[in-house]
Amino acid sequence: MTQRIPDGLRELLEQAAGPGQAPWRTLLRPGDWLLLLCCAALVATSFPLLWRGGVADRAIVKRDGQLVTELALNVARKYEVTGAIGTTVIEVQPGRARVLSDPGPRQYCVQQGWLTRANAVAICAPNHVTLQLAGRGGAHAGYDTINY
């Protein structure tokens, strides 16, 4: 069976398995330690990227695709939009927004609850009203709810 292993690999395996190997730390030179430290720091600082960009700072309310209003997400307030079959009430609190009530028969957009991330959308289709959050990075900063 050992004949089937490529020669180069067998050579490397034999070397790796040999006795009397030096301890791991002797394989690292001073610059290696420095580089590893720098890279570890860079990797650690890159982690906020995972959560950044999802922060929403305003809510965009549209009716029939036309912009009705933009609400800043820093003060709590309620906003009423008159749509095709009635009035949709949007509730805004610091950092989040939701459809509080809607005349639609199935209440999907109400049951969606609070929207917190940029580009999240609640669509009240029967009333032709949409509520979308937007972040600092523009319309394409985060995922939207359709293709993610």
Partner: peptide, 24 residues
């Protein structure tokens, strides 16, 4: 947004592979 995960993997596996190569 996945960069931190990929970077972590690259850091870990890069270090391990480098140590194995150094030992060889």
């Amino acid at each position: 947004y996945l960069l931190p995960l990929f970077a972590t993997a690259a850091f870990l596996f890069g270090t391990i592979n480098g140590l194995v190569a150094a030992r060889l």
